[in-house]
Amino acid sequence: MRVGTPAPLAPDDVPARRLDTRIRRMDGSLVLAFGETVVQLSESGALLYEHMDGRRTVGMLAAVLAETYELSEQEALTDTGEFLGYLLENSLAEVRTSGP
């Protein structure tokens, strides 16, 4: 598992929620907290986070985003990678890499 400053994610990497992250719905938004870090997710961020089940790959998550928001595959992969990178940098997610 990888946590912390991320290397670029591959489409076959599998992100997962950290079990020690607190999750709350406040005023219709999804809010994550870990330690002193508190993040309110955008609608698209909440969609991705809710689909992060430890089984779906980055590519699969990007496909959900592309379908929901009518994005190209490349736009969705870029946006998904940026979002997951942010979560990893803030210790709000972890990822199983596809490589050795």
Score class of each variant (00 low, 15 high):
residue 1 M to C: 14
residue 2 R to I: 14
residue 2 R to H: 14
residue 3 V to H: 09
residue 4 G to L: 03
residue 4 G to F: 04
residue 5 T to K: 13
residue 6 P to C: 06
residue 8 P to Y: 02
residue 8 P to Q: 02
residue 10 A to F: 15
residue 10 A to E: 15
residue 10 A to Y: 14
residue 10 A to Q: 15
residue 12 D to W: 08
residue 12 D to K: 08
residue 13 D to V: 09
residue 13 D to C: 11
residue 14 V to T: 06
residue 14 V to C: 09
residue 15 P to K: 05
residue 16 A to S: 14
residue 16 A to E: 13
residue 16 A to W: 10
residue 16 A to F: 12
residue 17 R to Y: 08
residue 17 R to C: 10
residue 18 R to A: 00
residue 18 R to E: 04
residue 19 L to S: 15
residue 19 L to A: 15
residue 19 L to P: 14
residue 20 D to C: 05
residue 20 D to Y: 09
residue 21 T to R: 07
residue 21 T to I: 04
residue 21 T to N: 07
residue 22 R to M: 14
residue 23 I to S: 14
residue 24 R to C: 04
residue 25 R to Y: 14
residue 25 R to W: 13
residue 27 D to I: 09
residue 27 D to N: 13
residue 27 D to W: 10
residue 28 G to T: 00
residue 29 S to Q: 05
residue 29 S to E: 03
residue 29 S to H: 06
residue 29 S to D: 05
residue 30 L to E: 04
residue 30 L to N: 02
residue 30 L to R: 04
residue 31 V to L: 08
residue 31 V to I: 01
residue 31 V to W: 08
residue 32 L to N: 06
residue 33 A to K: 01
residue 33 A to L: 07
residue 34 F to E: 13
residue 35 G to R: 06
residue 36 E to Q: 15
residue 37 T to W: 12
residue 37 T to Y: 11
residue 37 T to A: 12
residue 37 T to D: 13
residue 38 V to T: 10
residue 39 V to E: 11
residue 39 V to A: 10
residue 39 V to S: 10
residue 40 Q to C: 03
residue 41 L to T: 03
residue 41 L to V: 09
residue 43 E to N: 07
residue 44 S to H: 10
residue 44 S to Y: 08
residue 44 S to K: 10
residue 45 G to P: 09
residue 45 G to C: 04
residue 45 G to A: 08
residue 45 G to T: 00
residue 46 A to Q: 00
residue 49 Y to V: 07
residue 49 Y to K: 05
residue 50 E to G: 14
residue 50 E to F: 11
residue 52 M to Y: 11
residue 53 D to A: 09
residue 54 G to P: 02
residue 54 G to W: 08
residue 54 G to Q: 06
residue 57 T to I: 01
residue 57 T to F: 04
residue 57 T to N: 06
residue 58 V to G: 00
residue 58 V to T: 00
residue 60 M to Q: 11
residue 61 L to D: 09
residue 62 A to Y: 02
residue 63 A to C: 07
residue 63 A to R: 12
residue 63 A to M: 10
residue 64 V to I: 10
residue 64 V to R: 04
residue 65 L to S: 00
residue 65 L to C: 00
residue 65 L to N: 09
residue 65 L to K: 00
residue 66 A to F: 08
residue 67 E to W: 07
residue 67 E to R: 13
residue 67 E to C: 08
residue 67 E to I: 03
residue 68 T to N: 08
residue 68 T to L: 00
residue 70 E to N: 12
residue 70 E to A: 13
residue 71 L to K: 11
residue 72 S to D: 01
residue 73 E to S: 07
residue 73 E to P: 05
residue 73 E to T: 07
residue 74 Q to M: 15
residue 77 L to F: 10
residue 78 T to G: 10
residue 78 T to Y: 10
residue 79 D to P: 03
residue 79 D to S: 05
residue 80 T to L: 05
residue 80 T to D: 02
residue 81 G to N: 01
residue 82 E to A: 12
residue 83 F to M: 08
residue 84 L to D: 06
residue 85 G to Y: 12
residue 85 G to D: 04
residue 86 Y to Q: 11
residue 87 L to Q: 02
residue 88 L to R: 06
residue 88 L to T: 07
residue 90 N to R: 02
residue 91 S to M: 15
residue 91 S to N: 15
residue 91 S to W: 15
residue 91 S to T: 12
residue 92 L to D: 13
residue 93 A to I: 00
residue 94 E to Q: 01
residue 94 E to M: 03
residue 94 E to K: 05
residue 95 V to P: 05
residue 96 R to Q: 15
residue 97 T to H: 02
residue 98 S to D: 14
residue 98 S to R: 14
residue 99 G to P: 12
residue 100 P to A: 02
residue 100 P to E: 12
